[in-house]
Amino acid sequence: MHMADALLSPEVGASFLAASLTALAIGARRLQASLQEDSQLVALMGVLGAFVFAAQMINFSIPGTGSSGHLGGGMLLAILLGPWAGLIVIASVLLVQALFFADGGLLAWGANVFNLGVVSCLILYPLIYCTLAGDGNSRTRVTLAAVLACTLSTTLGATGVALETAASGITRLPLPEFLTLMIPIHLAIGFVEGLVTAGVLAALAQRRGGFSGRPLQAGSRGIIASFILAALLTGGVLSWLASAHPDGLEWSIERLGATHLLEEAPVDALHRQSAQVQQITAILPDYELPAALPKAGIVAPGVSIAGIVGSLATLALVALVALILRRPSRRIK
């Protein structure tokens, strides 16, 4: 389940991009030393990334639901490669998916890396998988750890999508209903992913004579805790900026000395009614306006003849630019 650009606000998108890039930068720095010591890791990361990318395209059936899902792969990568290498590999998979299949998008890449990579590799792998799996020699413990970690990872990833969508405020789908839609099916998908992951690890162990999960690198827990704190702070600070300070348009208008446009009262009955509805229903007034915007004089709410004519004219101009730039001499199949 990928977050999409169309559902993200810039504040949420930028916060998650910053958090994920920070995690990736820390991961890259820590891996430099590992790569010097173990040059095999580069090749392993590359082919395992290709493997997870391909495995995500194979759907598995979810018993009893008539539905299907696919692997996320973040937990499997963390178990096989370690948390930092796993994070970098899943980030690369998500980037290739964003570019080739537009799964998610460019701005949403950070949110997706966070939901599918940071949550599984940096939070659930050390806190759940490593704790439950212990030294990784007991098949029962590894299976239990993989099932629980994958179930939580998939469910938290889907919860992340719902929370980011709600925080962005682009869609009106209420958070409780969105979560009700998302969580049950992702619990089932995560549970099956956990079983498949545990089965893959067991089959590999049979071939290789032992489980191959690498231990969490020393000192990682402290870094993870600082990282979570930094992510929360980043989100908090950006949210505060978003709510307490004027947005770019308001700032520009203030600079132009035209603040009366921002404060102008609704002028007609429809605007007044809309403003009243907004005052009653707004959960976060002045952060996101669920009702028609009353900022008359800046953006006219609704549709007007001028708006329709202007939209058609804009489309005609875009088409004209396309015609001018087109090279008729080359036909592409």
Partner: peptide
């Protein structure tokens, strides 16, 4: 009809 059964998928993937 609804994807590869999990117990078979794990063998294929492994």
């Amino acid at each position: 009809r609804h994807g590869v059964p999990p117990h078979q998928l794990k063998l294929l993937l492994a």
